[in-house]
Simulated scan of single mutants.
Amino acid sequence: MIRWLGYALVPLVILVIAATIASMLGYGLLWIAGDILPLAKVISKITLVLLLLSIFPLKNYLQFSWAELGFAPKAMFFKQLGQGLALGLLTLLPVLLTLYWLDVHVWDDTRHWTAGKIAEKIGLGLFFAMLIAVGEEILFRGLLLGGLRRKTSIIAAVTISSIYYAALHFLKSKSQLVYADLTPSSGLKLMAEAFANWLNPAILSALLALFVVGVFLAILRSRVPQSLGLCIGCHAAWVWQIKVSRDLFNVNLQADSLFLVNTYYDGVVGPLVSSWLVSALIVYGLWSQRQAKVGLGD
């Protein structure tokens, strides 16, 4: 149990180290460049960059090949990418349609939309969604899940990696410090506030939903060999749809079914996403059991 707990805490130690370095670098960057961005945003971006850069030394330290991280050969990878995009559309589009049907999401008629502007939003949304998905999937379903599977059970690996995946989305500080008041310790104060945000009750339903998202992707990665392409495609499709939906629609704060989303986070992720994906996992589990019985019968 103590050893299992130790493995579970290693990613947290790495995260704290990255955030601490980012806090110091963030102050130094603004000291050199001037008042270009809020310090909290700079720290957040630098922390993410450091975590992504850590993939390479950690990959070498753990002696992972790219195949062990989940990358299939090129042709298969791109095929998986397409299949993942289709799976992502299939699993999130019904949620968005339901939210629109229930008037939780309403068309933003305050903005003038043309076919060209909508196409631009869709194209840019997919590009940035793919960048996000590639980085996060290599980090969470490649390196973290793979590393934990070597040291713990599959259930523990899926659970721990999904907790970190969900929690990282809420490592944020909303304090806006005046540039003239910044000191070398300002970044550390913001970092402490960001970690304290994990105790904010307002994030609970979104945190749970993102945990379920992490479990869904981790199971997908674990059940299909070298399936990181599937995870990247599915993840990208989800982020893409959420980005486009937030551009085109507003959250109706007077809707009777507003409880289905978390308005503190993004107005999409919440109880409806949780219940929908849990249902999908149950169906997949029952299907897998049936296939196993058929295989034994043969």
Rank of each mutant, 00 (worst) to 15 (best):
Trp113Val: 05
Leu126Ala: 10
Asn252Asp: 14
Leu188His: 09
Gly88Phe: 04
Trp66Ala: 02
Val158Glu: 03
Ser65Asp: 11
Val269Tyr: 02
Leu139Ser: 02
Leu258Asp: 02
Ser275Thr: 15
Leu210Tyr: 13
Thr98Pro: 04
Phe77Lys: 07
Ala156Leu: 14
Asp109Ile: 11
Tyr284Pro: 02
Arg290Cys: 03
Phe249Leu: 14
Gly88Glu: 00
Trp276Pro: 05
Ser279Thr: 09
Leu69His: 00
Phe56Asp: 01
Ile138Tyr: 06
Ser227Phe: 03
Ala202Ser: 12
Leu97His: 07
Thr183Ser: 13
Tyr61Ile: 10
Asn197Asp: 12
Val49Thr: 12
Ala167Asp: 00
Pro73Ala: 06
Ala86Tyr: 05
Met76Tyr: 15
Ile154Trp: 12
His235Ser: 06
Leu92Phe: 08
Ser162Asn: 01
His105Cys: 04
Leu139Tyr: 09
Ala236Met: 08
Ala67Met: 08
Trp4Gly: 11
Ser205Tyr: 07
Ala237Gly: 07
Thr114Leu: 07
Arg111Trp: 11
Arg246Ala: 15
Ser222Asn: 05
Gly146Leu: 04
Pro184Glu: 02
Lys117Thr: 10
Met130Phe: 14
Leu230Val: 03
Ala40Gln: 13
Ile36Lys: 13
Tyr61Thr: 09
Ser185Val: 11
Leu58Ile: 12
Leu96Ser: 03
Ala19Tyr: 10
Leu37Pro: 00
Phe195Ala: 00
Cys234Asp: 08
Ser54Lys: 00
Ala166His: 03
Gly123Val: 11
Gly214Thr: 02
Phe216Arg: 04
Thr98Leu: 14
Ala133Met: 00
Gly285Leu: 06
Gly82His: 11
Arg150Ala: 11
Ala157Gln: 05
Arg246Phe: 01
Phe71His: 10
Pro201Ala: 02
Phe170Val: 11
Gly6His: 08
Phe77Cys: 03
Leu53Gln: 05
Leu148Ala: 01
Ile242Cys: 06
Asn250Glu: 12
Pro94Met: 08
Leu89Pro: 02
Met24Val: 15
Asp266Thr: 00
Glu137Ser: 09
Leu99Thr: 06
Leu208Gln: 10
Leu253Glu: 14
Val278His: 03
Leu139Trp: 06
Leu124Glu: 12
Leu286Tyr: 09
Ala157Asn: 01
Ser173Ala: 11
Met191Gly: 01
Ala167Pro: 00
Arg149Cys: 08
